[in-house]
Design a protein around this nucleic acid. Structure first.
Lengths: 220, 220
DNA sequence: GTTTTATTCAATTGATTTATTGATCATTTG
DNA sequence: CAAATGATCAATAAATCAATTGAATAAAAC
């Protein structure tokens, strides 16, 4: 009995369906920062434990995440770098071709100071600036996410603690702030605060997500 | 009123949902070969016209395809190269991480001569062979798909007509056959026939789909 | 070996998605 | 302008998916 083309597409569509829920995408974004047990993922995504568990198993069946028992926790992680590539590609497609997305992205940031925020840096620009040692790189995500892996050479200054760390930051060099990815506002919040205090600052908005998706190394 | 992260993920999930149906993936595979009106797409995917139309609009809302009226037909096409990248990435993920997929892929080809078929060529291998002018490249898809765009330098020999074209093919050079993509069996069927007739033949199984996804040019 | 903790399973309910049917709309042809 | 063609829309029924609840497991702590 030969296998029909359609059977293959049906199995393949599992991957698509797994990516077809906002909650599951939120889980994946969190896993793009660090591997994590169910409880943490549920908390970060605003889901009940049981519900998160089921979504995670959905992702697992689709091959997007793996799970490993560690003591009494079940630690989930992305299966490989390709999943990041899938996510960033989806983001690009949505940003470019879905009008609703553009509208929301606009509103995500211009709460009060629309015009003031500079264009974010691209990864290529950031890499060039880093090579030439021109900038101070600032990871404004929470401490645990920084510890689980961050851009080489980045300092950690969680956005909530940023105010208390200003004296440690240079005023004569440009600062580049980054966070989780395009849908994360930490770097935006940080940049606004820093600019108000007289720092020169830009953002690498694509963040950890795009960096990892490009296959670039993280430091620990 | 600020936009929540979750709203963004919900919009983004439209892209995933659009990829979450075997029928829609079949439509996309066809569109990866050539742009086409609804009727053709419905026929190729075994869907009713109305149903195909609705699936296509689903894809359109997700930004995966665009439609342009041409006379009384509505011609659909992929929005851009990124969609190909999405599809090939999904395939890779499924092949690597979903056991069911591996099983089906195995059964797709080994109907009778399991062991005989050589490992397919990778794109890199093909490119090297082409540069050195070592091989004759054979596009075994239907004529119209070939005409809509094919690998530079490829001859067209639709698998159904292949038997009548054997005399035009070289016996002293290796032939490389390719078709639509990993789920297309044309190149496999062609390779078997050619091998039976004493030709030296290999397959570039990833086909047009992967070639385009890599951003490489087609000839017309 | 019982209790505690973290997770999964199973059953239920409500919400989406899908395929089908027949009607409608836009464009071209006679 | 009427008829024909290609595609979309609207309404329905069937199938699938999502969130909730409470029970069941598995490992660790007592």
């Amino acid at each position: 009995m030969p296998v029909s083309r359609q059977e293959l597409f049906d199995v393949l569509s599992q991957v698509g369906r797994a990516l077809g829920s906002g909650h599951r995408l939120a889980l994946l974004e969190h896993l793009a920062q660090k591997h994590a047990p169910v409880e943490e993922l549920a908390g970060a995504s605003g889901l009940s434990i049981a519900n998160a568990s089921q979504h995670l198993q959905h992702l697992r069946r689709a091959g997007l995440v793996t799970a490993r028992r560690d003591g009494r926790q079940m630690v989930y992680r992305l299966t490989d770098e390709r999943i990041l590539r899938l996510l960033t590609l989806m983001q690009e497609v949505a940003e470019t071709h879905i009008a609703e997305m553009e509208r929301l992205m606009g509103r995500l940031f211009d709460d009060d100071d629309a015009g003031e925020t500079l264009e974010p840096m691209t990864r290529a620009q950031l890499q060039r600036a880093l090579e030439q040692g021109e900038v101070t790189l600032l990871d404004v995500r929470p401490r645990e996410e920084y510890r689980a892996g961050h851009l080489p050479g980045a300092l950690n200054a969680p956005v909530v603690e940023l105010e208390t760390m200003l004296s440690a930051l240079p005023r004569d060099r440009e600062i580049v702030a980054y966070c989780r990815g395009v849908y994360c506002t930490f770097s935006h919040d940080a940049a606004r605060l820093l600019r108000e205090r007289g720092f020169q600052v830009r953002r690498y908005q694509a963040g950890i997500m795009e960096w990892r998706a490009a296959g670039l190394p993280l430091a620990e």
